[in-house]
Design a protein around this nucleic acid. Structure first.
Length: 459
DNA sequence: CACTGGAGCCAC
DNA sequence: AAACGTGGCTCCAGTG
């Protein structure tokens, strides 16, 4: 017997298609003048930096080696110059055995040429993928990305032409240049409402681990903060934003999705240097760890047992405690795997069937990632429906996995915020009994452009 | 010239 | 034994 998706699952995607079609048709208002201006400005920056690179000694070596075929954008050529001609040591290989030439590999090379090369490449990416790529899709000042529901293995959504779901934000210089081009329509504001910690909360529901649910429910508890404290051996009060960020993305999520101490330890260790992590009192975390008796990373090789006194050994212990902290999760991981191995398929809490060959890690990720998005999609459907019913002028214009972007008339702002919060945190829980953890949202508003959005309270 | 896969980088 | 997931876009390098 072939398992089939539930009626509810099918309906969610049917209604979802219609709601997303409304978003696509509405479109996002763009500052085309600014896009054009920025394309020129970044173009000049790229030319200037390229000119500087071409006066560098390294470029002479490059020309000697590659002659007329010399191409500053070629990573394989750069690799040949650095690792063959200049004798730098290549520490990482790609899966096809070539020398890695990514930011991670290049950051260790202390050459002005290389650091400038990284900067040029970042700007080229910004210009071609985002500025030029987005301008190509703008029609009468509006951008109409395609929001898909038929392409992912997890029953998440995706987006293309352009992909509105990966606009830079982490690097403020790059993010600012592109996000300032997204603007509200005249007399309106852009409103972005996103779920707080949605994936962790949905994970707690899926595994029904009481301790995990407690973390997801009590706003005074913070798993990322607590794990930062453990990983970097500091008191909770000494954990600031940055170490918390790296604990979240370098420990908690990787561990939840099947990574382990070898990789995790390396990641957390490297973050100390690259992000210049400190305690709240400003003590460098290497120094801090040394005081606590840890002065080296360790081999981080799966064949060797971690050596006592190393960071790797410490993280191995933290991992053990993490598993003990969430005993139900630890137990159910195995049961979930066994069930799949027996049947060859599984069903998400939202009624979708995942059938096929899955790795262990995919098995941990899919049942969380899909349903988390389905909370957003269900909310989006209700939102679009209610806006129409109430004859509001608000236009929902975008969706980014756990957030909704809308173009709202100033006079509808308060109503809109109330409505969206009610749907996303209350109504969705009435609809799905499996959501046993509370949900929360955060809202940001801007009257100028998407980069300038500021947090607002929802009363 | 069209097409493909790899590598890399952007987001959640 | 093995080792975090999902996407889209661009460029290069190689193929026919």
């Amino acid at each position: 017997m072939v398992a089939t998706p539930s009626k509810e699952a099918l309906k969610l995607f049917q209604d979802g298609c219609l709601a997303l079609a409304v978003l696509e048709s509405n479109g996002i208002c763009m500052d085309v003048e600014r896009i054009n201006r920025t394309i020129d400005e970044v173009g000049v920056q790229i030319e200037d930096l390229t000119g500087e690179l071409k006066t560098d000694e390294v470029w002479k070596t490059w020309k000697r080696r590659w002659g007329d075929k010399s191409n500053l954008s070629s990573r394989s050529q750069l690799a040949s110059i650095l690792f063959k001609e200049m004798g730098y040591e290549s520490k990482h290989a790609t899966k096809t055995g070539r020398d890695k030439v990514d930011v991670d590999a290049l950051e260790g090379i202390d050459l002005p040429f290389v650091q400038k090369w990284i900067r040029v490449e970042k700007h080229k990416k910004l210009r071609s993928t985002y500025l030029v790529g987005i301008r190509r899709e703008v029609c009468d000042g509006l951008l109409h990305p395609s929001f898909n529901l038929h392409l992912t293995r997890t029953y998440r959504g995706s987006c293309d032409s352009p992909n509105f779901q990966n606009i830079p934000i982490r690097d403020p210089e790059i993010g600012g240049m592109i996000r300032r081009c997204f603007i509200p329509r005249p007399g309106r504001v852009l409103v972005e409402v996103d779920y707080s910690a949605l994936e962790f909360r949905i994970a707690s529901c899926f595994w029904s681990d009481p301790a995990m649910i407690r973390y997801a429910s009590d706003s005074t508890l913070d798993i990322h903060r607590d794990m930062a404290a453990e990983c970097y051996k500091m008191p909770v009060e000494q954990v600031t934003k940055k170490p918390r960020f790296y604990a979240k993305n370098g420990f908690v999520f990787p561990e939840l999705y099947g990574s382990y101490y070898c990789n995790v330890a390396r990641e957390l260790w490297n973050a100390i240097e690259s992000a210049e992590l400190t305690t709240a009192d400003g003590v460098d975390l290497f120094k801090h760890l040394r005081r606590a008796g840890i002065s080296e990373l360790g081999a981080c090789d799966s064949h060797d047992k971690p050596v006592k006194g190393t960071f790797e050994h410490h993280i191995c212990q933290v991992e053990k405690r993490f598993n003990e902290k969430f005993p139900t999760w630890s137990r159910k991981k195995d049961e979930w795997l066994k069930l799949y191995q027996k049947r060859g398929w599984f069903r998400t809490m939202t009624g979708f069937v995942c059938a096929g060959v899955f790795s262990r890690n995919e098995l941990y990720n899919y049942p969380v990632q899909g349903p988390a998005f389905h909370c957003l999609l269900w909310s989006l459907i209700q939102l679009v429906k209610q806006i129409k019913k109430r004859k509001m002028q608000t236009l929902v214009v975008g969706q980014i996995h756990d957030s909704i972007l809308a173009d709202v008339p100033e006079e509808e702002l308060d109503d809109y915020l109330q409505m969206v919060k009610q749907i996303m945190t209350v109504d969705v829980r009435d609809h799905w009994a499996w959501i046993v953890a509370p949900l929360g949202v955060e809202a940001e508003v801007t009257r100028t452009n998407w980069f300038e959005k500021k947090a607002v309270e929802i009363k």
